[in-house]
């Protein structure tokens, strides 16, 4: 099987990223499914994996030894995120703003800064039939899921096709999720709002120079603004799924359509083949 990494994204939540990702991973037979939506991972609700491992994710946060600090402020001037302030002759660290670059520690001439590990979340690993499932879960109250996504993508297997279920939107967490992808699937809804969000991720994958195509979801009779956007912008439509009330019901119950419905299984195998042809 191809060891390609395919990222599934959309500008907004609820378009069907997880639906497409979960079913594609299942249709592939042997695959890796990575849930990078670490703020609200839900792929596991479909796979109900038997957990095999759990790994903590920590980041490095600076700690200042005030006895060694001479107040030169090299660290506060260095930090691009302004995570350090100097008041009352002491350096104050804003842990939630720190991006763990370690720069303050390097520029400190007194070696007064060291680092501590701070937990930001965890990665759960499990299996469901031939699919290896990795879910990232961010600790409540943490500011950024990026370190967890990094860990997820490092941990993912290299010898099977990997489906990356991305967070909604086009911010840092999405960029981190698609960074090493061989191909991006943009899932789009047939609404004007959906088109606006599609255009955001379209611009993003263009900046990353990753090949991409779209999947039109919840298609209904009549005009499809998302389809028009794809045609106007030369985005290849890889597949389409009609609006299906029964699908909505089963999906909401956590069923994997590709497992319980032959026609959906065939559709996803077809979609997978189209995508694999694109990344060949």
């Amino acid at each position: 099987m191809e060891s390609k990494k395919i990222a599934v994204l959309s500008g907004k939540g609820g378009t069907g990223k997880t639906f497409v990702s979960v079913n594609l991973a299942d249709a592939a037979g042997t695959s890796v499914y990575i849930d990078c939506d670490v703020e609200e991972p839900n792929g596991h609700l479909f796979f109900k994996p038997a957990l095999t491992a759990e790994e903590k994710v920590t980041v490095k946060i600076p700690v200042v030894n005030h006895d060694l600090c001479t107040g030169c402020r090299k660290c506060t001037e260095f930090c691009r995120f302004n995570a350090l302030a100097y008041l009352k002759n002491k350096v104050k660290v804003f842990e939630d703003i720190c991006h763990s670059c370690g720069g303050c520690m390097l520029v400190c001439p007194q070696k007064a800064i060291y680092e501590k590990d701070v937990s930001v979340g965890k990665v759960e690993i499990g299996t469901s039939r031939g699919v290896k499932i990795l879910s990232g879960i961010m600790d409540i109250g943490k500011a950024s899921g990026v370190p967890i996504i990094k860990k997820l993508l490092e941990t993912g297997s290299k010898d099977a096709i990997t489906i990356v279920d991305c967070p909604p939107g086009s911010a840092c967490v999405t960029m981190e999720s698609i960074k090493d992808a061989d191909f991006c699937i943009l899932v789009a809804e047939p609404t004007l709002f959906g088109v606006h969000n599609l255009s955001m991720v379209h611009e993003l994958v263009g900046l990353f120079e990753i090949p991409y195509g779209s999947v039109l979801n919840k298609c209904i009779d009549g005009k499809n603004p998302a389809e028009k956007y794809c045609n106007d912008n030369d985005i290849k439509i890889l597949g389409r799924f009609d609006y299906d009330k029964e699908l909505g019901r089963l999906n909401a119950q956590g069923e994997i359509m590709s497992r319980i419905d032959k026609s959906y299984n065939e559709k996803f195998i077809e979609l997978l083949n189209v995508v694999l042809e694109e990344v060949k």
Binding site: T76, N82, A85, F94
Partner: peptide
């Protein structure tokens, strides 16, 4: 980022 912290500083 952290404009508030820097402005306060």
């Amino acid at each position: 980022g952290g404009a508030g912290i820097k402005a306060a500083q």
